[in-house]
Computed example of a mutant assay.
Amino acid sequence: MAHPALDIVALAPMRHQSERAPGKNYRDFGGLPLYHHIVRALLACGRIRKIVIDTDSPRIRDDAARHFPDVVCIERPAELCGGEVPMNRILLHDVELFPADYYLQTHSTNPLLTPETIARAVDAFAAALPEHDSLFSVTAMQTRLWDAAGRPLNHDPQVLLRTQDLPPVYEENSNLYLFSAASLKRHGNRIGERPLLFPVPPQEAMDIDEEFDFQLAELVYRAKKLQKDAS
């Protein structure tokens, strides 16, 4: 069921090639192609009217047609292909094709993100309107950070608080974004002027960029599956 207050289309861009982890979007991850995990989470979250996969991959389009007949797959235009194309340009193209009140953008490289967390993000955004014009997910960090010149960023070395007592700082983790077409077009960015930061539990927030990320995320996935099967 879609969210009763918000009309939301989910956008899931997926490239065929990946330089740092070849073929990652359709590689086996826990017994399924990697991208299946985020599509299943979006289908199960109960907050999305339509899911759109934007891809240059014939393999993903063919596989999605077999396994996810209710998901729309579109072929990415040639001028938007390539790793150097900014994601915001791709999103600007996609929102023109699928009108909606709001868009939720995520990635196939977030296989640990759960339907419950996606639903909580949408509900938090709906409750925060109109004070906030967008949402992006973050991972809270409580650790001592330094800049390249050796200057402390978030702590006083003379005080040396315990790390759990440090004020949190937040890493943009690329798990999910919520925005309107108007905000995207106005700023040329999926993050608007007044974004709501939405913390995602670290055990869900892993984003697969490199081969090591893939291996580590799969270990976490299998451990969670074993724990669930044993309960």
Rank of each mutant, 00 (worst) to 15 (best):
A78D: 14
A78R: 15
A78K: 13
A78H: 09
E79M: 10
E79I: 12
C81I: 14
C81Q: 15
C81A: 12
C81E: 14
C81S: 13
G82F: 11
G82Y: 09
G82R: 09
G83P: 09
G83D: 13
E84N: 14
V85H: 05
P86K: 09
P86N: 07
P86D: 07
P86F: 08
N88Y: 13
R89Q: 14
I90K: 13
L91R: 12
L91Q: 11
L92E: 10
L92A: 13
H93K: 09
H93T: 05
H93W: 13
D94H: 02
D94E: 10
D94M: 10
V95Q: 04
V95I: 15
V95L: 06
E96Q: 13
E96T: 10
E96C: 08
E96A: 14
E96V: 03
L97N: 01
L97C: 04
F98C: 01
A100R: 03
A100Q: 01
A100G: 07
A100P: 04
A100D: 02
D101N: 09
D101P: 00
Y102W: 12
Y102S: 02
Y102P: 00
Y103F: 11
Y103L: 02
L104F: 08
L104A: 07
Q105W: 03
Q105M: 13
Q105R: 13
T106C: 14
H107M: 10
H107F: 15
T109R: 15
T109Y: 03
T109V: 12
T109A: 15
N110T: 15
N110Q: 13
P111N: 11
P111D: 12
P111G: 11
P111C: 12
P111F: 09
L112N: 06
L112F: 04
L113R: 08
L113K: 06
L113S: 07
L113V: 12
T114C: 03
P115N: 02
E116R: 10
E116S: 10
E116Q: 14
T117N: 06
T117H: 07
T117D: 02
T117V: 11
I118L: 15
I118C: 02
I118W: 01
I118Q: 06
A119C: 08
R120E: 11
R120M: 10
R120F: 00
A121C: 11
A121I: 07
V122L: 01
V122H: 05
A124Y: 02
F125S: 00
F125N: 01
F125M: 00
F125K: 00
F125H: 04
F125G: 00
A126Y: 03
A127N: 04
A127F: 01
A127M: 00
A127W: 00
A127H: 07
A128P: 05
A128D: 02
L129T: 07
L129G: 06
L129P: 01
L129C: 06
P130L: 07
E131A: 15
E131S: 10
H132I: 04
H132K: 15
H132D: 03
D133A: 07
L135D: 05
L135C: 08
S137K: 02
V138G: 01
V138L: 06
